Computed example of a mutant assay.
Amino acid sequence: MIPLKTLGRMLRPGLIVAMAVLMTGCDWSLFDPKGHIAREELTLLITCTVLMLLVVIPVIIMTLVFAWKYRASNTSARYEPKWSHSTAIEVVVWSIPCMIVLVLAVLTWRSSHALDPYKPLESDKKAITIEAVSLDWKWLFIYPEENVAVVNELTFPVGAPLNFKLTSDTVMNAFFIPHLGSMVYSMAGMETKLHLIADEAGSFDGMSSHYSGAGFNKMHFKAHAVTDEQYQQWLAKVRAEGSVLDQASLTELGAQKNHDWFPVTYYASTQAGLFDAMIARHMGDNHHYGMKHDRSDAAANGVSHEGHDAGDTAPQAEHHSGEHAAAGHAGHSGSGE
């Protein structure tokens, strides 16, 4: 019978090769930034990791060295059973970690403000506003300035700041494009914000990074960073091939609880105020941000959250415009995004 130690030595090279082969299929998008925010976040991640390794690596090495040097069979090692204190050792083991923690604290404080997802980005190009809505289980992107909307596809010019306004028409979700940077949650009855930018052209994977139900694994999309000319061509294509996104079509879209990936769908024009109306209808009469009324309470008050038509939602969105801004601010401070 082969001893376990010998078997382990025999299998070790094979395991290393197998791990290397498997790792070749991994998506290293976090380590392949395509925008300013993602690049700064990668720099912060590497810097913090290296600083922490300044403690971790010496500790691992000393553990192995001490275990070998002071093993029971090594009779030449110094044996001091009554030793209890060394000022030099105390200075080293406390001062170095304290300095590293101090440096990490300064780095994270500065980067937390510099990379705040609510902070607008500066650029020579005009910023593009995109209203992102998480549905079951797909993403709806409304371009209010262009008056178009798309399901499960993002297209934007290279170098243009992207001002995302996020909400959910269902459960909480998380919007994330790893190549471009920060992840931010979308929540019903609340508006969160995210600012990103792409520094080079390409197609990047976007996803929901928060479990939200049976179709969660199909809740992904492509984000295309293109030239200005290609962006205008894409807008013309959407307007030529798309239908109209109004309250009725939005309700129909949300009712489709797709478990498979929902195909890219274009909307050539959109009804004004849909994004604000979606937020308002989840706030309820008592303005509990992000909370829905119980159906029995809603019925008692003569309110139906699923029965809003275009005539109901637009005035309600206007009425709650002040609270809507407060909800966005409260969501930012409360969630720590």
Rank of each mutant, 00 (worst) to 15 (best):
M1G: 02
I2L: 13
L15N: 04
A18Y: 03
D27H: 14
D27R: 13
D27P: 02
D32N: 13
P33K: 12
G35E: 01
A38F: 01
A38I: 05
E41N: 03
L42I: 03
L42S: 06
L45W: 07
T49Y: 10
L51C: 11
M52Q: 15
V56S: 06
I57G: 15
P58V: 13
V59C: 08
I61L: 09
V65L: 07
N74C: 07
N74A: 09
T75M: 12
T87L: 10
E90W: 11
V91R: 14
W94E: 07
W109P: 01
S111K: 06
S112N: 15
H113R: 13
S123A: 14
K125E: 05
A127L: 07
T129C: 03
A132E: 11
A132C: 09
V133H: 07
D136E: 15
K138A: 09
L140R: 06
I142R: 07
E145Q: 12
V150C: 15
T155V: 15
L162P: 03
L162Y: 03
L166S: 05
S168D: 12
D169F: 04
N173S: 15
F175I: 07
P178C: 11
L180V: 04
S186Y: 01
M190G: 01
L194P: 00
I197S: 05
D205K: 15
D205V: 14
Y211W: 05
A214G: 01
H224W: 03
A225N: 02
D228K: 00
Q230I: 02
Q233S: 14
L235S: 01
A240W: 00
E241Q: 14
Q247Y: 02
A248E: 11
T251K: 03
G254M: 04
A255F: 09
Q256K: 15
W261V: 06
Y267Q: 00
G273T: 05
F275R: 05
A277W: 05
A277V: 02
A280I: 08
H288E: 01
M291Y: 03
K292V: 06
A300Y: 02
G302M: 08
H305E: 15
D312W: 02
S321Q: 00
S321K: 05
E323N: 00
A325D: 12
